[in-house]
């Protein structure tokens, strides 16, 4: 598995989209710090960009990559290789190369400009989101044979997690504002890794006190260590479950 992954990585790190992605992240991160100066404000800018861009690029790129590599996958399938190790190496290859783009474009400049805990959390969240959206992309691509439909699906997932989900939550809150929804709100955030990641980062900034208004349980959960670890575990579950499903589906799939 690692052998194929190694070749996929060496191919992907020369991919111009990934290079552009890393470069853009780098420029934007530095730009936010140069323009906004204040630590927290720049962090918020980078956070907003990350939450938008990372899922989008990741999900679209991974989906396209799968479809484009279909014939290559067929060639690999003709070799004495297990199916699991083929899809596994694709996942690993995407994860490492998109992850490297995050580290180079986001993690390093962030750490250099603002060497605080919040920078680590933000980079970690970006990495987790990459893992999650690669998984979702593979799930869609393995499931949907047609490239155009698969792309549409992947884009929809992005719009859903970045926009629609929050809209539904807001509507729900409007309609149930007379009820004690605070605990429900906490559980709802678990259902969207983008929201969860955003809150994990925000809790490390000044905005934490405002988040506290969402409710005491909410505040307590996210400001305590075990809450942070629980969030991390939930994010990992978000990364693991779609991948596990896509691996499973790939095992019984007709190529």
């Amino acid at each position: 598995m690692f052998k194929i992954a190694k070749f996929i990585i060496s191919d992907l790190i020369k991919n111009w989209i990934i290079l552009l992605y890393a470069f853009f992240l780098l420029l934007a991160t530095i730009g936010f710090f140069l323009l906004q100066g204040q630590g927290d404000k720049a962090i918020l800018g980078v956070l907003n960009l990350t939450l938008m861009l990372v899922p989008m690029i990741t999900v679209i790129f991974s989906t396209i990559y799968y479809y484009n590599m279909y014939e290559f996958m067929v060639l690999l399938m003709a070799q004495p290789l297990k199916r699991g190790s083929i899809i596994g190496s694709f996942y690993l290859g995407l994860l490492v190369s998109l992850g490297l783009a995050i580290v180079a474009g986001l993690g390093l400049p962030l750490w250099l400009m603002h060497p605080h805990w919040v920078s680590l959390v933000l980079s970690g969240v970006a990495l987790l989101l990459s893992g999650i959206f690669i998984g979702l992309a593979l799930l869609v691509a393995v499931w949907v044979r047609d490239k155009a439909r698969g792309m549409g699906f992947a884009l929809f997932l992005w719009v859903y997690f970045v926009l629609i989900f929050d809209g539904l939550v807001l509507l729900m809150m409007y309609n149930f504002s007379d009820y004690p929804i605070e605990k429900v709100v906490l559980y709802i955030t678990f259902l969207n890794p983008v929201d969860l990641g955003r809150i994990m980062v925000l809790m490390q900034t000044e905005a934490a006190a405002l988040m506290g208004y969402s409710g005491a349980i909410f505040q307590q959960f996210f400001s305590e260590w075990w809450g942070l670890i629980a969030s991390l575990l939930i994010m990992l579950a978000w990364a693991f479950i779609p991948v596990a499903f896509s691996f499973r589906m790939f095992r019984d799939k007709d190529l």
Binding site: D11, L12, E71, V74, L75, A78
Partner: peptide, 14 residues
């Protein structure tokens, strides 16, 4: 088995 597919596509930068 040696297999030669009908159509080939390889990683772009390989």
């Amino acid at each position: 088995i040696g297999y030669m597919p009908q159509m080939s596509r390889f990683p772009a930068n390989m």
